[in-house]
Amino acid sequence: MKNLIPSWVRVPVVFFIIFGLVEYFIDSGDKPAFMEQPIVLLFLLLVLLVLIGIESIVASVDNILYQSLDEAGKARYDAKRSKAPEFKWINNLYKKLLGQKPIKEEHEIILDHNYDGIKELDNNLPPWWIWGFYATIVFAAVYLARYHVFNGENQYQELEAKLAQAKIDIEAYKKTAKNLVDINTVELLTEASDLNAGKTIYEVNCIACHKADGGGGIGPNLADEHWISGGGIKNVFKTVSEGGRAGKGMIAWKQSLKPLEIAQVSSYVLQFQGTSPAEPKAPEGDIWIDPNNPKATTETQETPSDSTQVQ
């Protein structure tokens, strides 16, 4: 009886199914997204079971038909099978993996049991099953030595290592993704391109309240040392993003500007420090001292001024 599934189809399909199952259970880190779905695993298992079922049915029917032939028919059948042109080496390998006796030699392993004409064969276990069993023993020995004798890295340690690496990767990504900047990660921008972008944003949105030279009008003077909500890039970034004092301060610009744009305009605003506006507004708020600059703190404490209020 001719195989319903030829070897050139059967072997590659079985190979890719086994490969897919292995890929599903092994964390390779770059597996396709669909391979992480349980439905894929169930589909592969179903296809594999169907193929095994078809092969079993074909083999059973083939055996029944062969037994029903006379000696001449069996001879013709054997001759036809021996001349089969398709991938003979694959068929031979397939038979070796099954470890079954050829049909014409099955009379050698027939048991004495007879159930209503149904006879039982004393086949050995398939070689693939035996070698698979040996492989599990070897795997168990290596696993025992690796994790219980030499205290190899367990899954919790692997998770901690991956989390630590993920944090490093995130920080590295943030350095190149400026739009992810926030109050905790913002830094003073000094590149000309960023300052020019900040100047453009300032001229469009901020001149009406702070004037072009930062001298202040409706809003406070940006050129002196006094700050209502604190100076420095982090405080200025927060003020621009979240807004000033409730009810009478600047609006929150986070709805209109991107994080990078807020960082750019905040860095530009700090460029007004120490300049001399044409019509400076009177100081408001307190003198802000950079906590990360102890030298500036010491100098301020040594030369206090009656007109300043240290925060």
Results as ranks from 00 to 15, higher is better:
L21V: 09
K2P: 15
G99Y: 00
W253V: 01
A161C: 08
W8S: 10
I103V: 06
N114A: 07
I287M: 02
Q301P: 11
I289A: 05
L189Y: 07
A172I: 08
G152F: 02
L144H: 06
T190Q: 15
F139S: 00
G152S: 04
T176Y: 14
L45Y: 05
P85K: 15
G217H: 09
I201H: 08
P259W: 00
C209M: 05
D169R: 07
L180Q: 12
H226V: 13
W253N: 06
K178F: 13
M35K: 01
M35V: 01
D286Y: 07
M35H: 02
G73I: 00
G219K: 03
N221W: 00
R81Y: 11
N91Q: 12
I118F: 12
L125R: 09
H148N: 10
E261H: 01
V269A: 06
I54Q: 06
G29E: 01
E105P: 00
S276Q: 14
P102E: 03
W8R: 12
S193N: 12
A172E: 11
Y202T: 00
W227F: 14
Y173I: 14
K254N: 09
M35S: 04
Q264D: 05
K254Q: 07
E36W: 04
E153F: 11
G216Q: 02
A140L: 08
G99A: 01
H148A: 08
V149Y: 06
K238H: 10
K258Y: 08
I262S: 00
H210L: 02
A246I: 14
K2H: 15
V9G: 04
E191G: 10
V142E: 02
I18S: 13
S7D: 12
D224R: 08
I168N: 13
P102R: 02
L49M: 13
Q165E: 15
M250Y: 05
F139Q: 05
K95G: 10
I118D: 03
L189N: 01
A208T: 11
F16L: 05
R81V: 15
V269G: 03
A135C: 07
G132L: 04
I168G: 13
K178D: 10
I18P: 07
Q271Y: 00
A223N: 01
G29C: 03
C206Q: 02
E120F: 15
P283R: 13
K83N: 13
F237Q: 03
Q273V: 09
E203L: 01
W227L: 08
A223C: 00
Q100E: 10
Y156K: 14
D70R: 07
Y115L: 10
F19G: 07
L41Q: 06
K175R: 12
A197V: 11
L41K: 09
P277E: 04
I103K: 07
L93G: 14
G53V: 00
F272T: 03
P294E: 02
H210A: 02
P126N: 05
